[in-house]
Lab assay of single mutants.
Amino acid sequence: KKRTSIEVSVKGVLETHFLKCPKPAAQEISSLADSLQLEKEVVRVWFCNRRQKEKR
């Protein structure tokens, strides 16, 4: 599977969401993915990776 490069503008939206809610529910991930025209899996993994980054 190819890596998905995420646009800077999209990263901004994801970051804003992350600050409000670092662990979104599946439904939130779905609606976020739809509005950003990304796959749900890509958004889910982004949040996973972002949470791990917080720990470091």
Rank of each mutant, 00 (worst) to 15 (best):
S35A: 13
K2Y: 10
C21K: 03
E41C: 01
R56V: 12
T4Q: 11
C21F: 04
E7Y: 08
G12W: 08
V8L: 15
L14E: 01
E54S: 04
K11W: 08
I29D: 03
E7P: 15
K53P: 01
K20G: 03
A25I: 08
V43S: 01
E41W: 01
W46V: 02
A26K: 07
P24W: 06
R50G: 02
K55A: 11
L32N: 02
R56Q: 04
K23S: 14
E15F: 04
I6K: 11
F47I: 00
R44H: 06
D34C: 05
S9Q: 14
D34N: 07
V45R: 11
R3G: 13
V45F: 05
S30E: 14
S9F: 08
F47W: 02
E41I: 02
Q37A: 07
H17K: 06
W46H: 04
Q27I: 06
S31W: 06
C48Y: 10
L38F: 02
V42R: 04
L32I: 12
V43T: 00
P24K: 05
C21V: 02
D34Q: 10
E28P: 08
E54D: 09
V13P: 00
K55Q: 12
S35P: 02
K53M: 12
K11M: 14
V45Q: 14
V45Y: 07
S31H: 14
E28Q: 07
I29A: 00
K1Y: 05
V10H: 11
C48G: 05
K55I: 04
S35F: 09
K2W: 02
L36R: 05
A26Y: 09
S30N: 10
W46A: 04
G12D: 15
F18K: 06
E7W: 12
C48R: 13
A33P: 01
A33E: 04
A33R: 04
I6P: 10
E39T: 07
A25H: 11
L32M: 07
F47Q: 01
H17N: 06
E7F: 06
R3L: 15
N49D: 12
E7A: 11
T4F: 09
E7S: 15
E54W: 01
K1S: 11
V10L: 06
V42E: 14
V10K: 11
K1C: 08
L36Q: 03
A33M: 01
S30D: 13
E7M: 10
S30K: 12
W46L: 02
T16C: 08
D34S: 08
A25Q: 13
A26V: 09
E39P: 12
R50C: 02
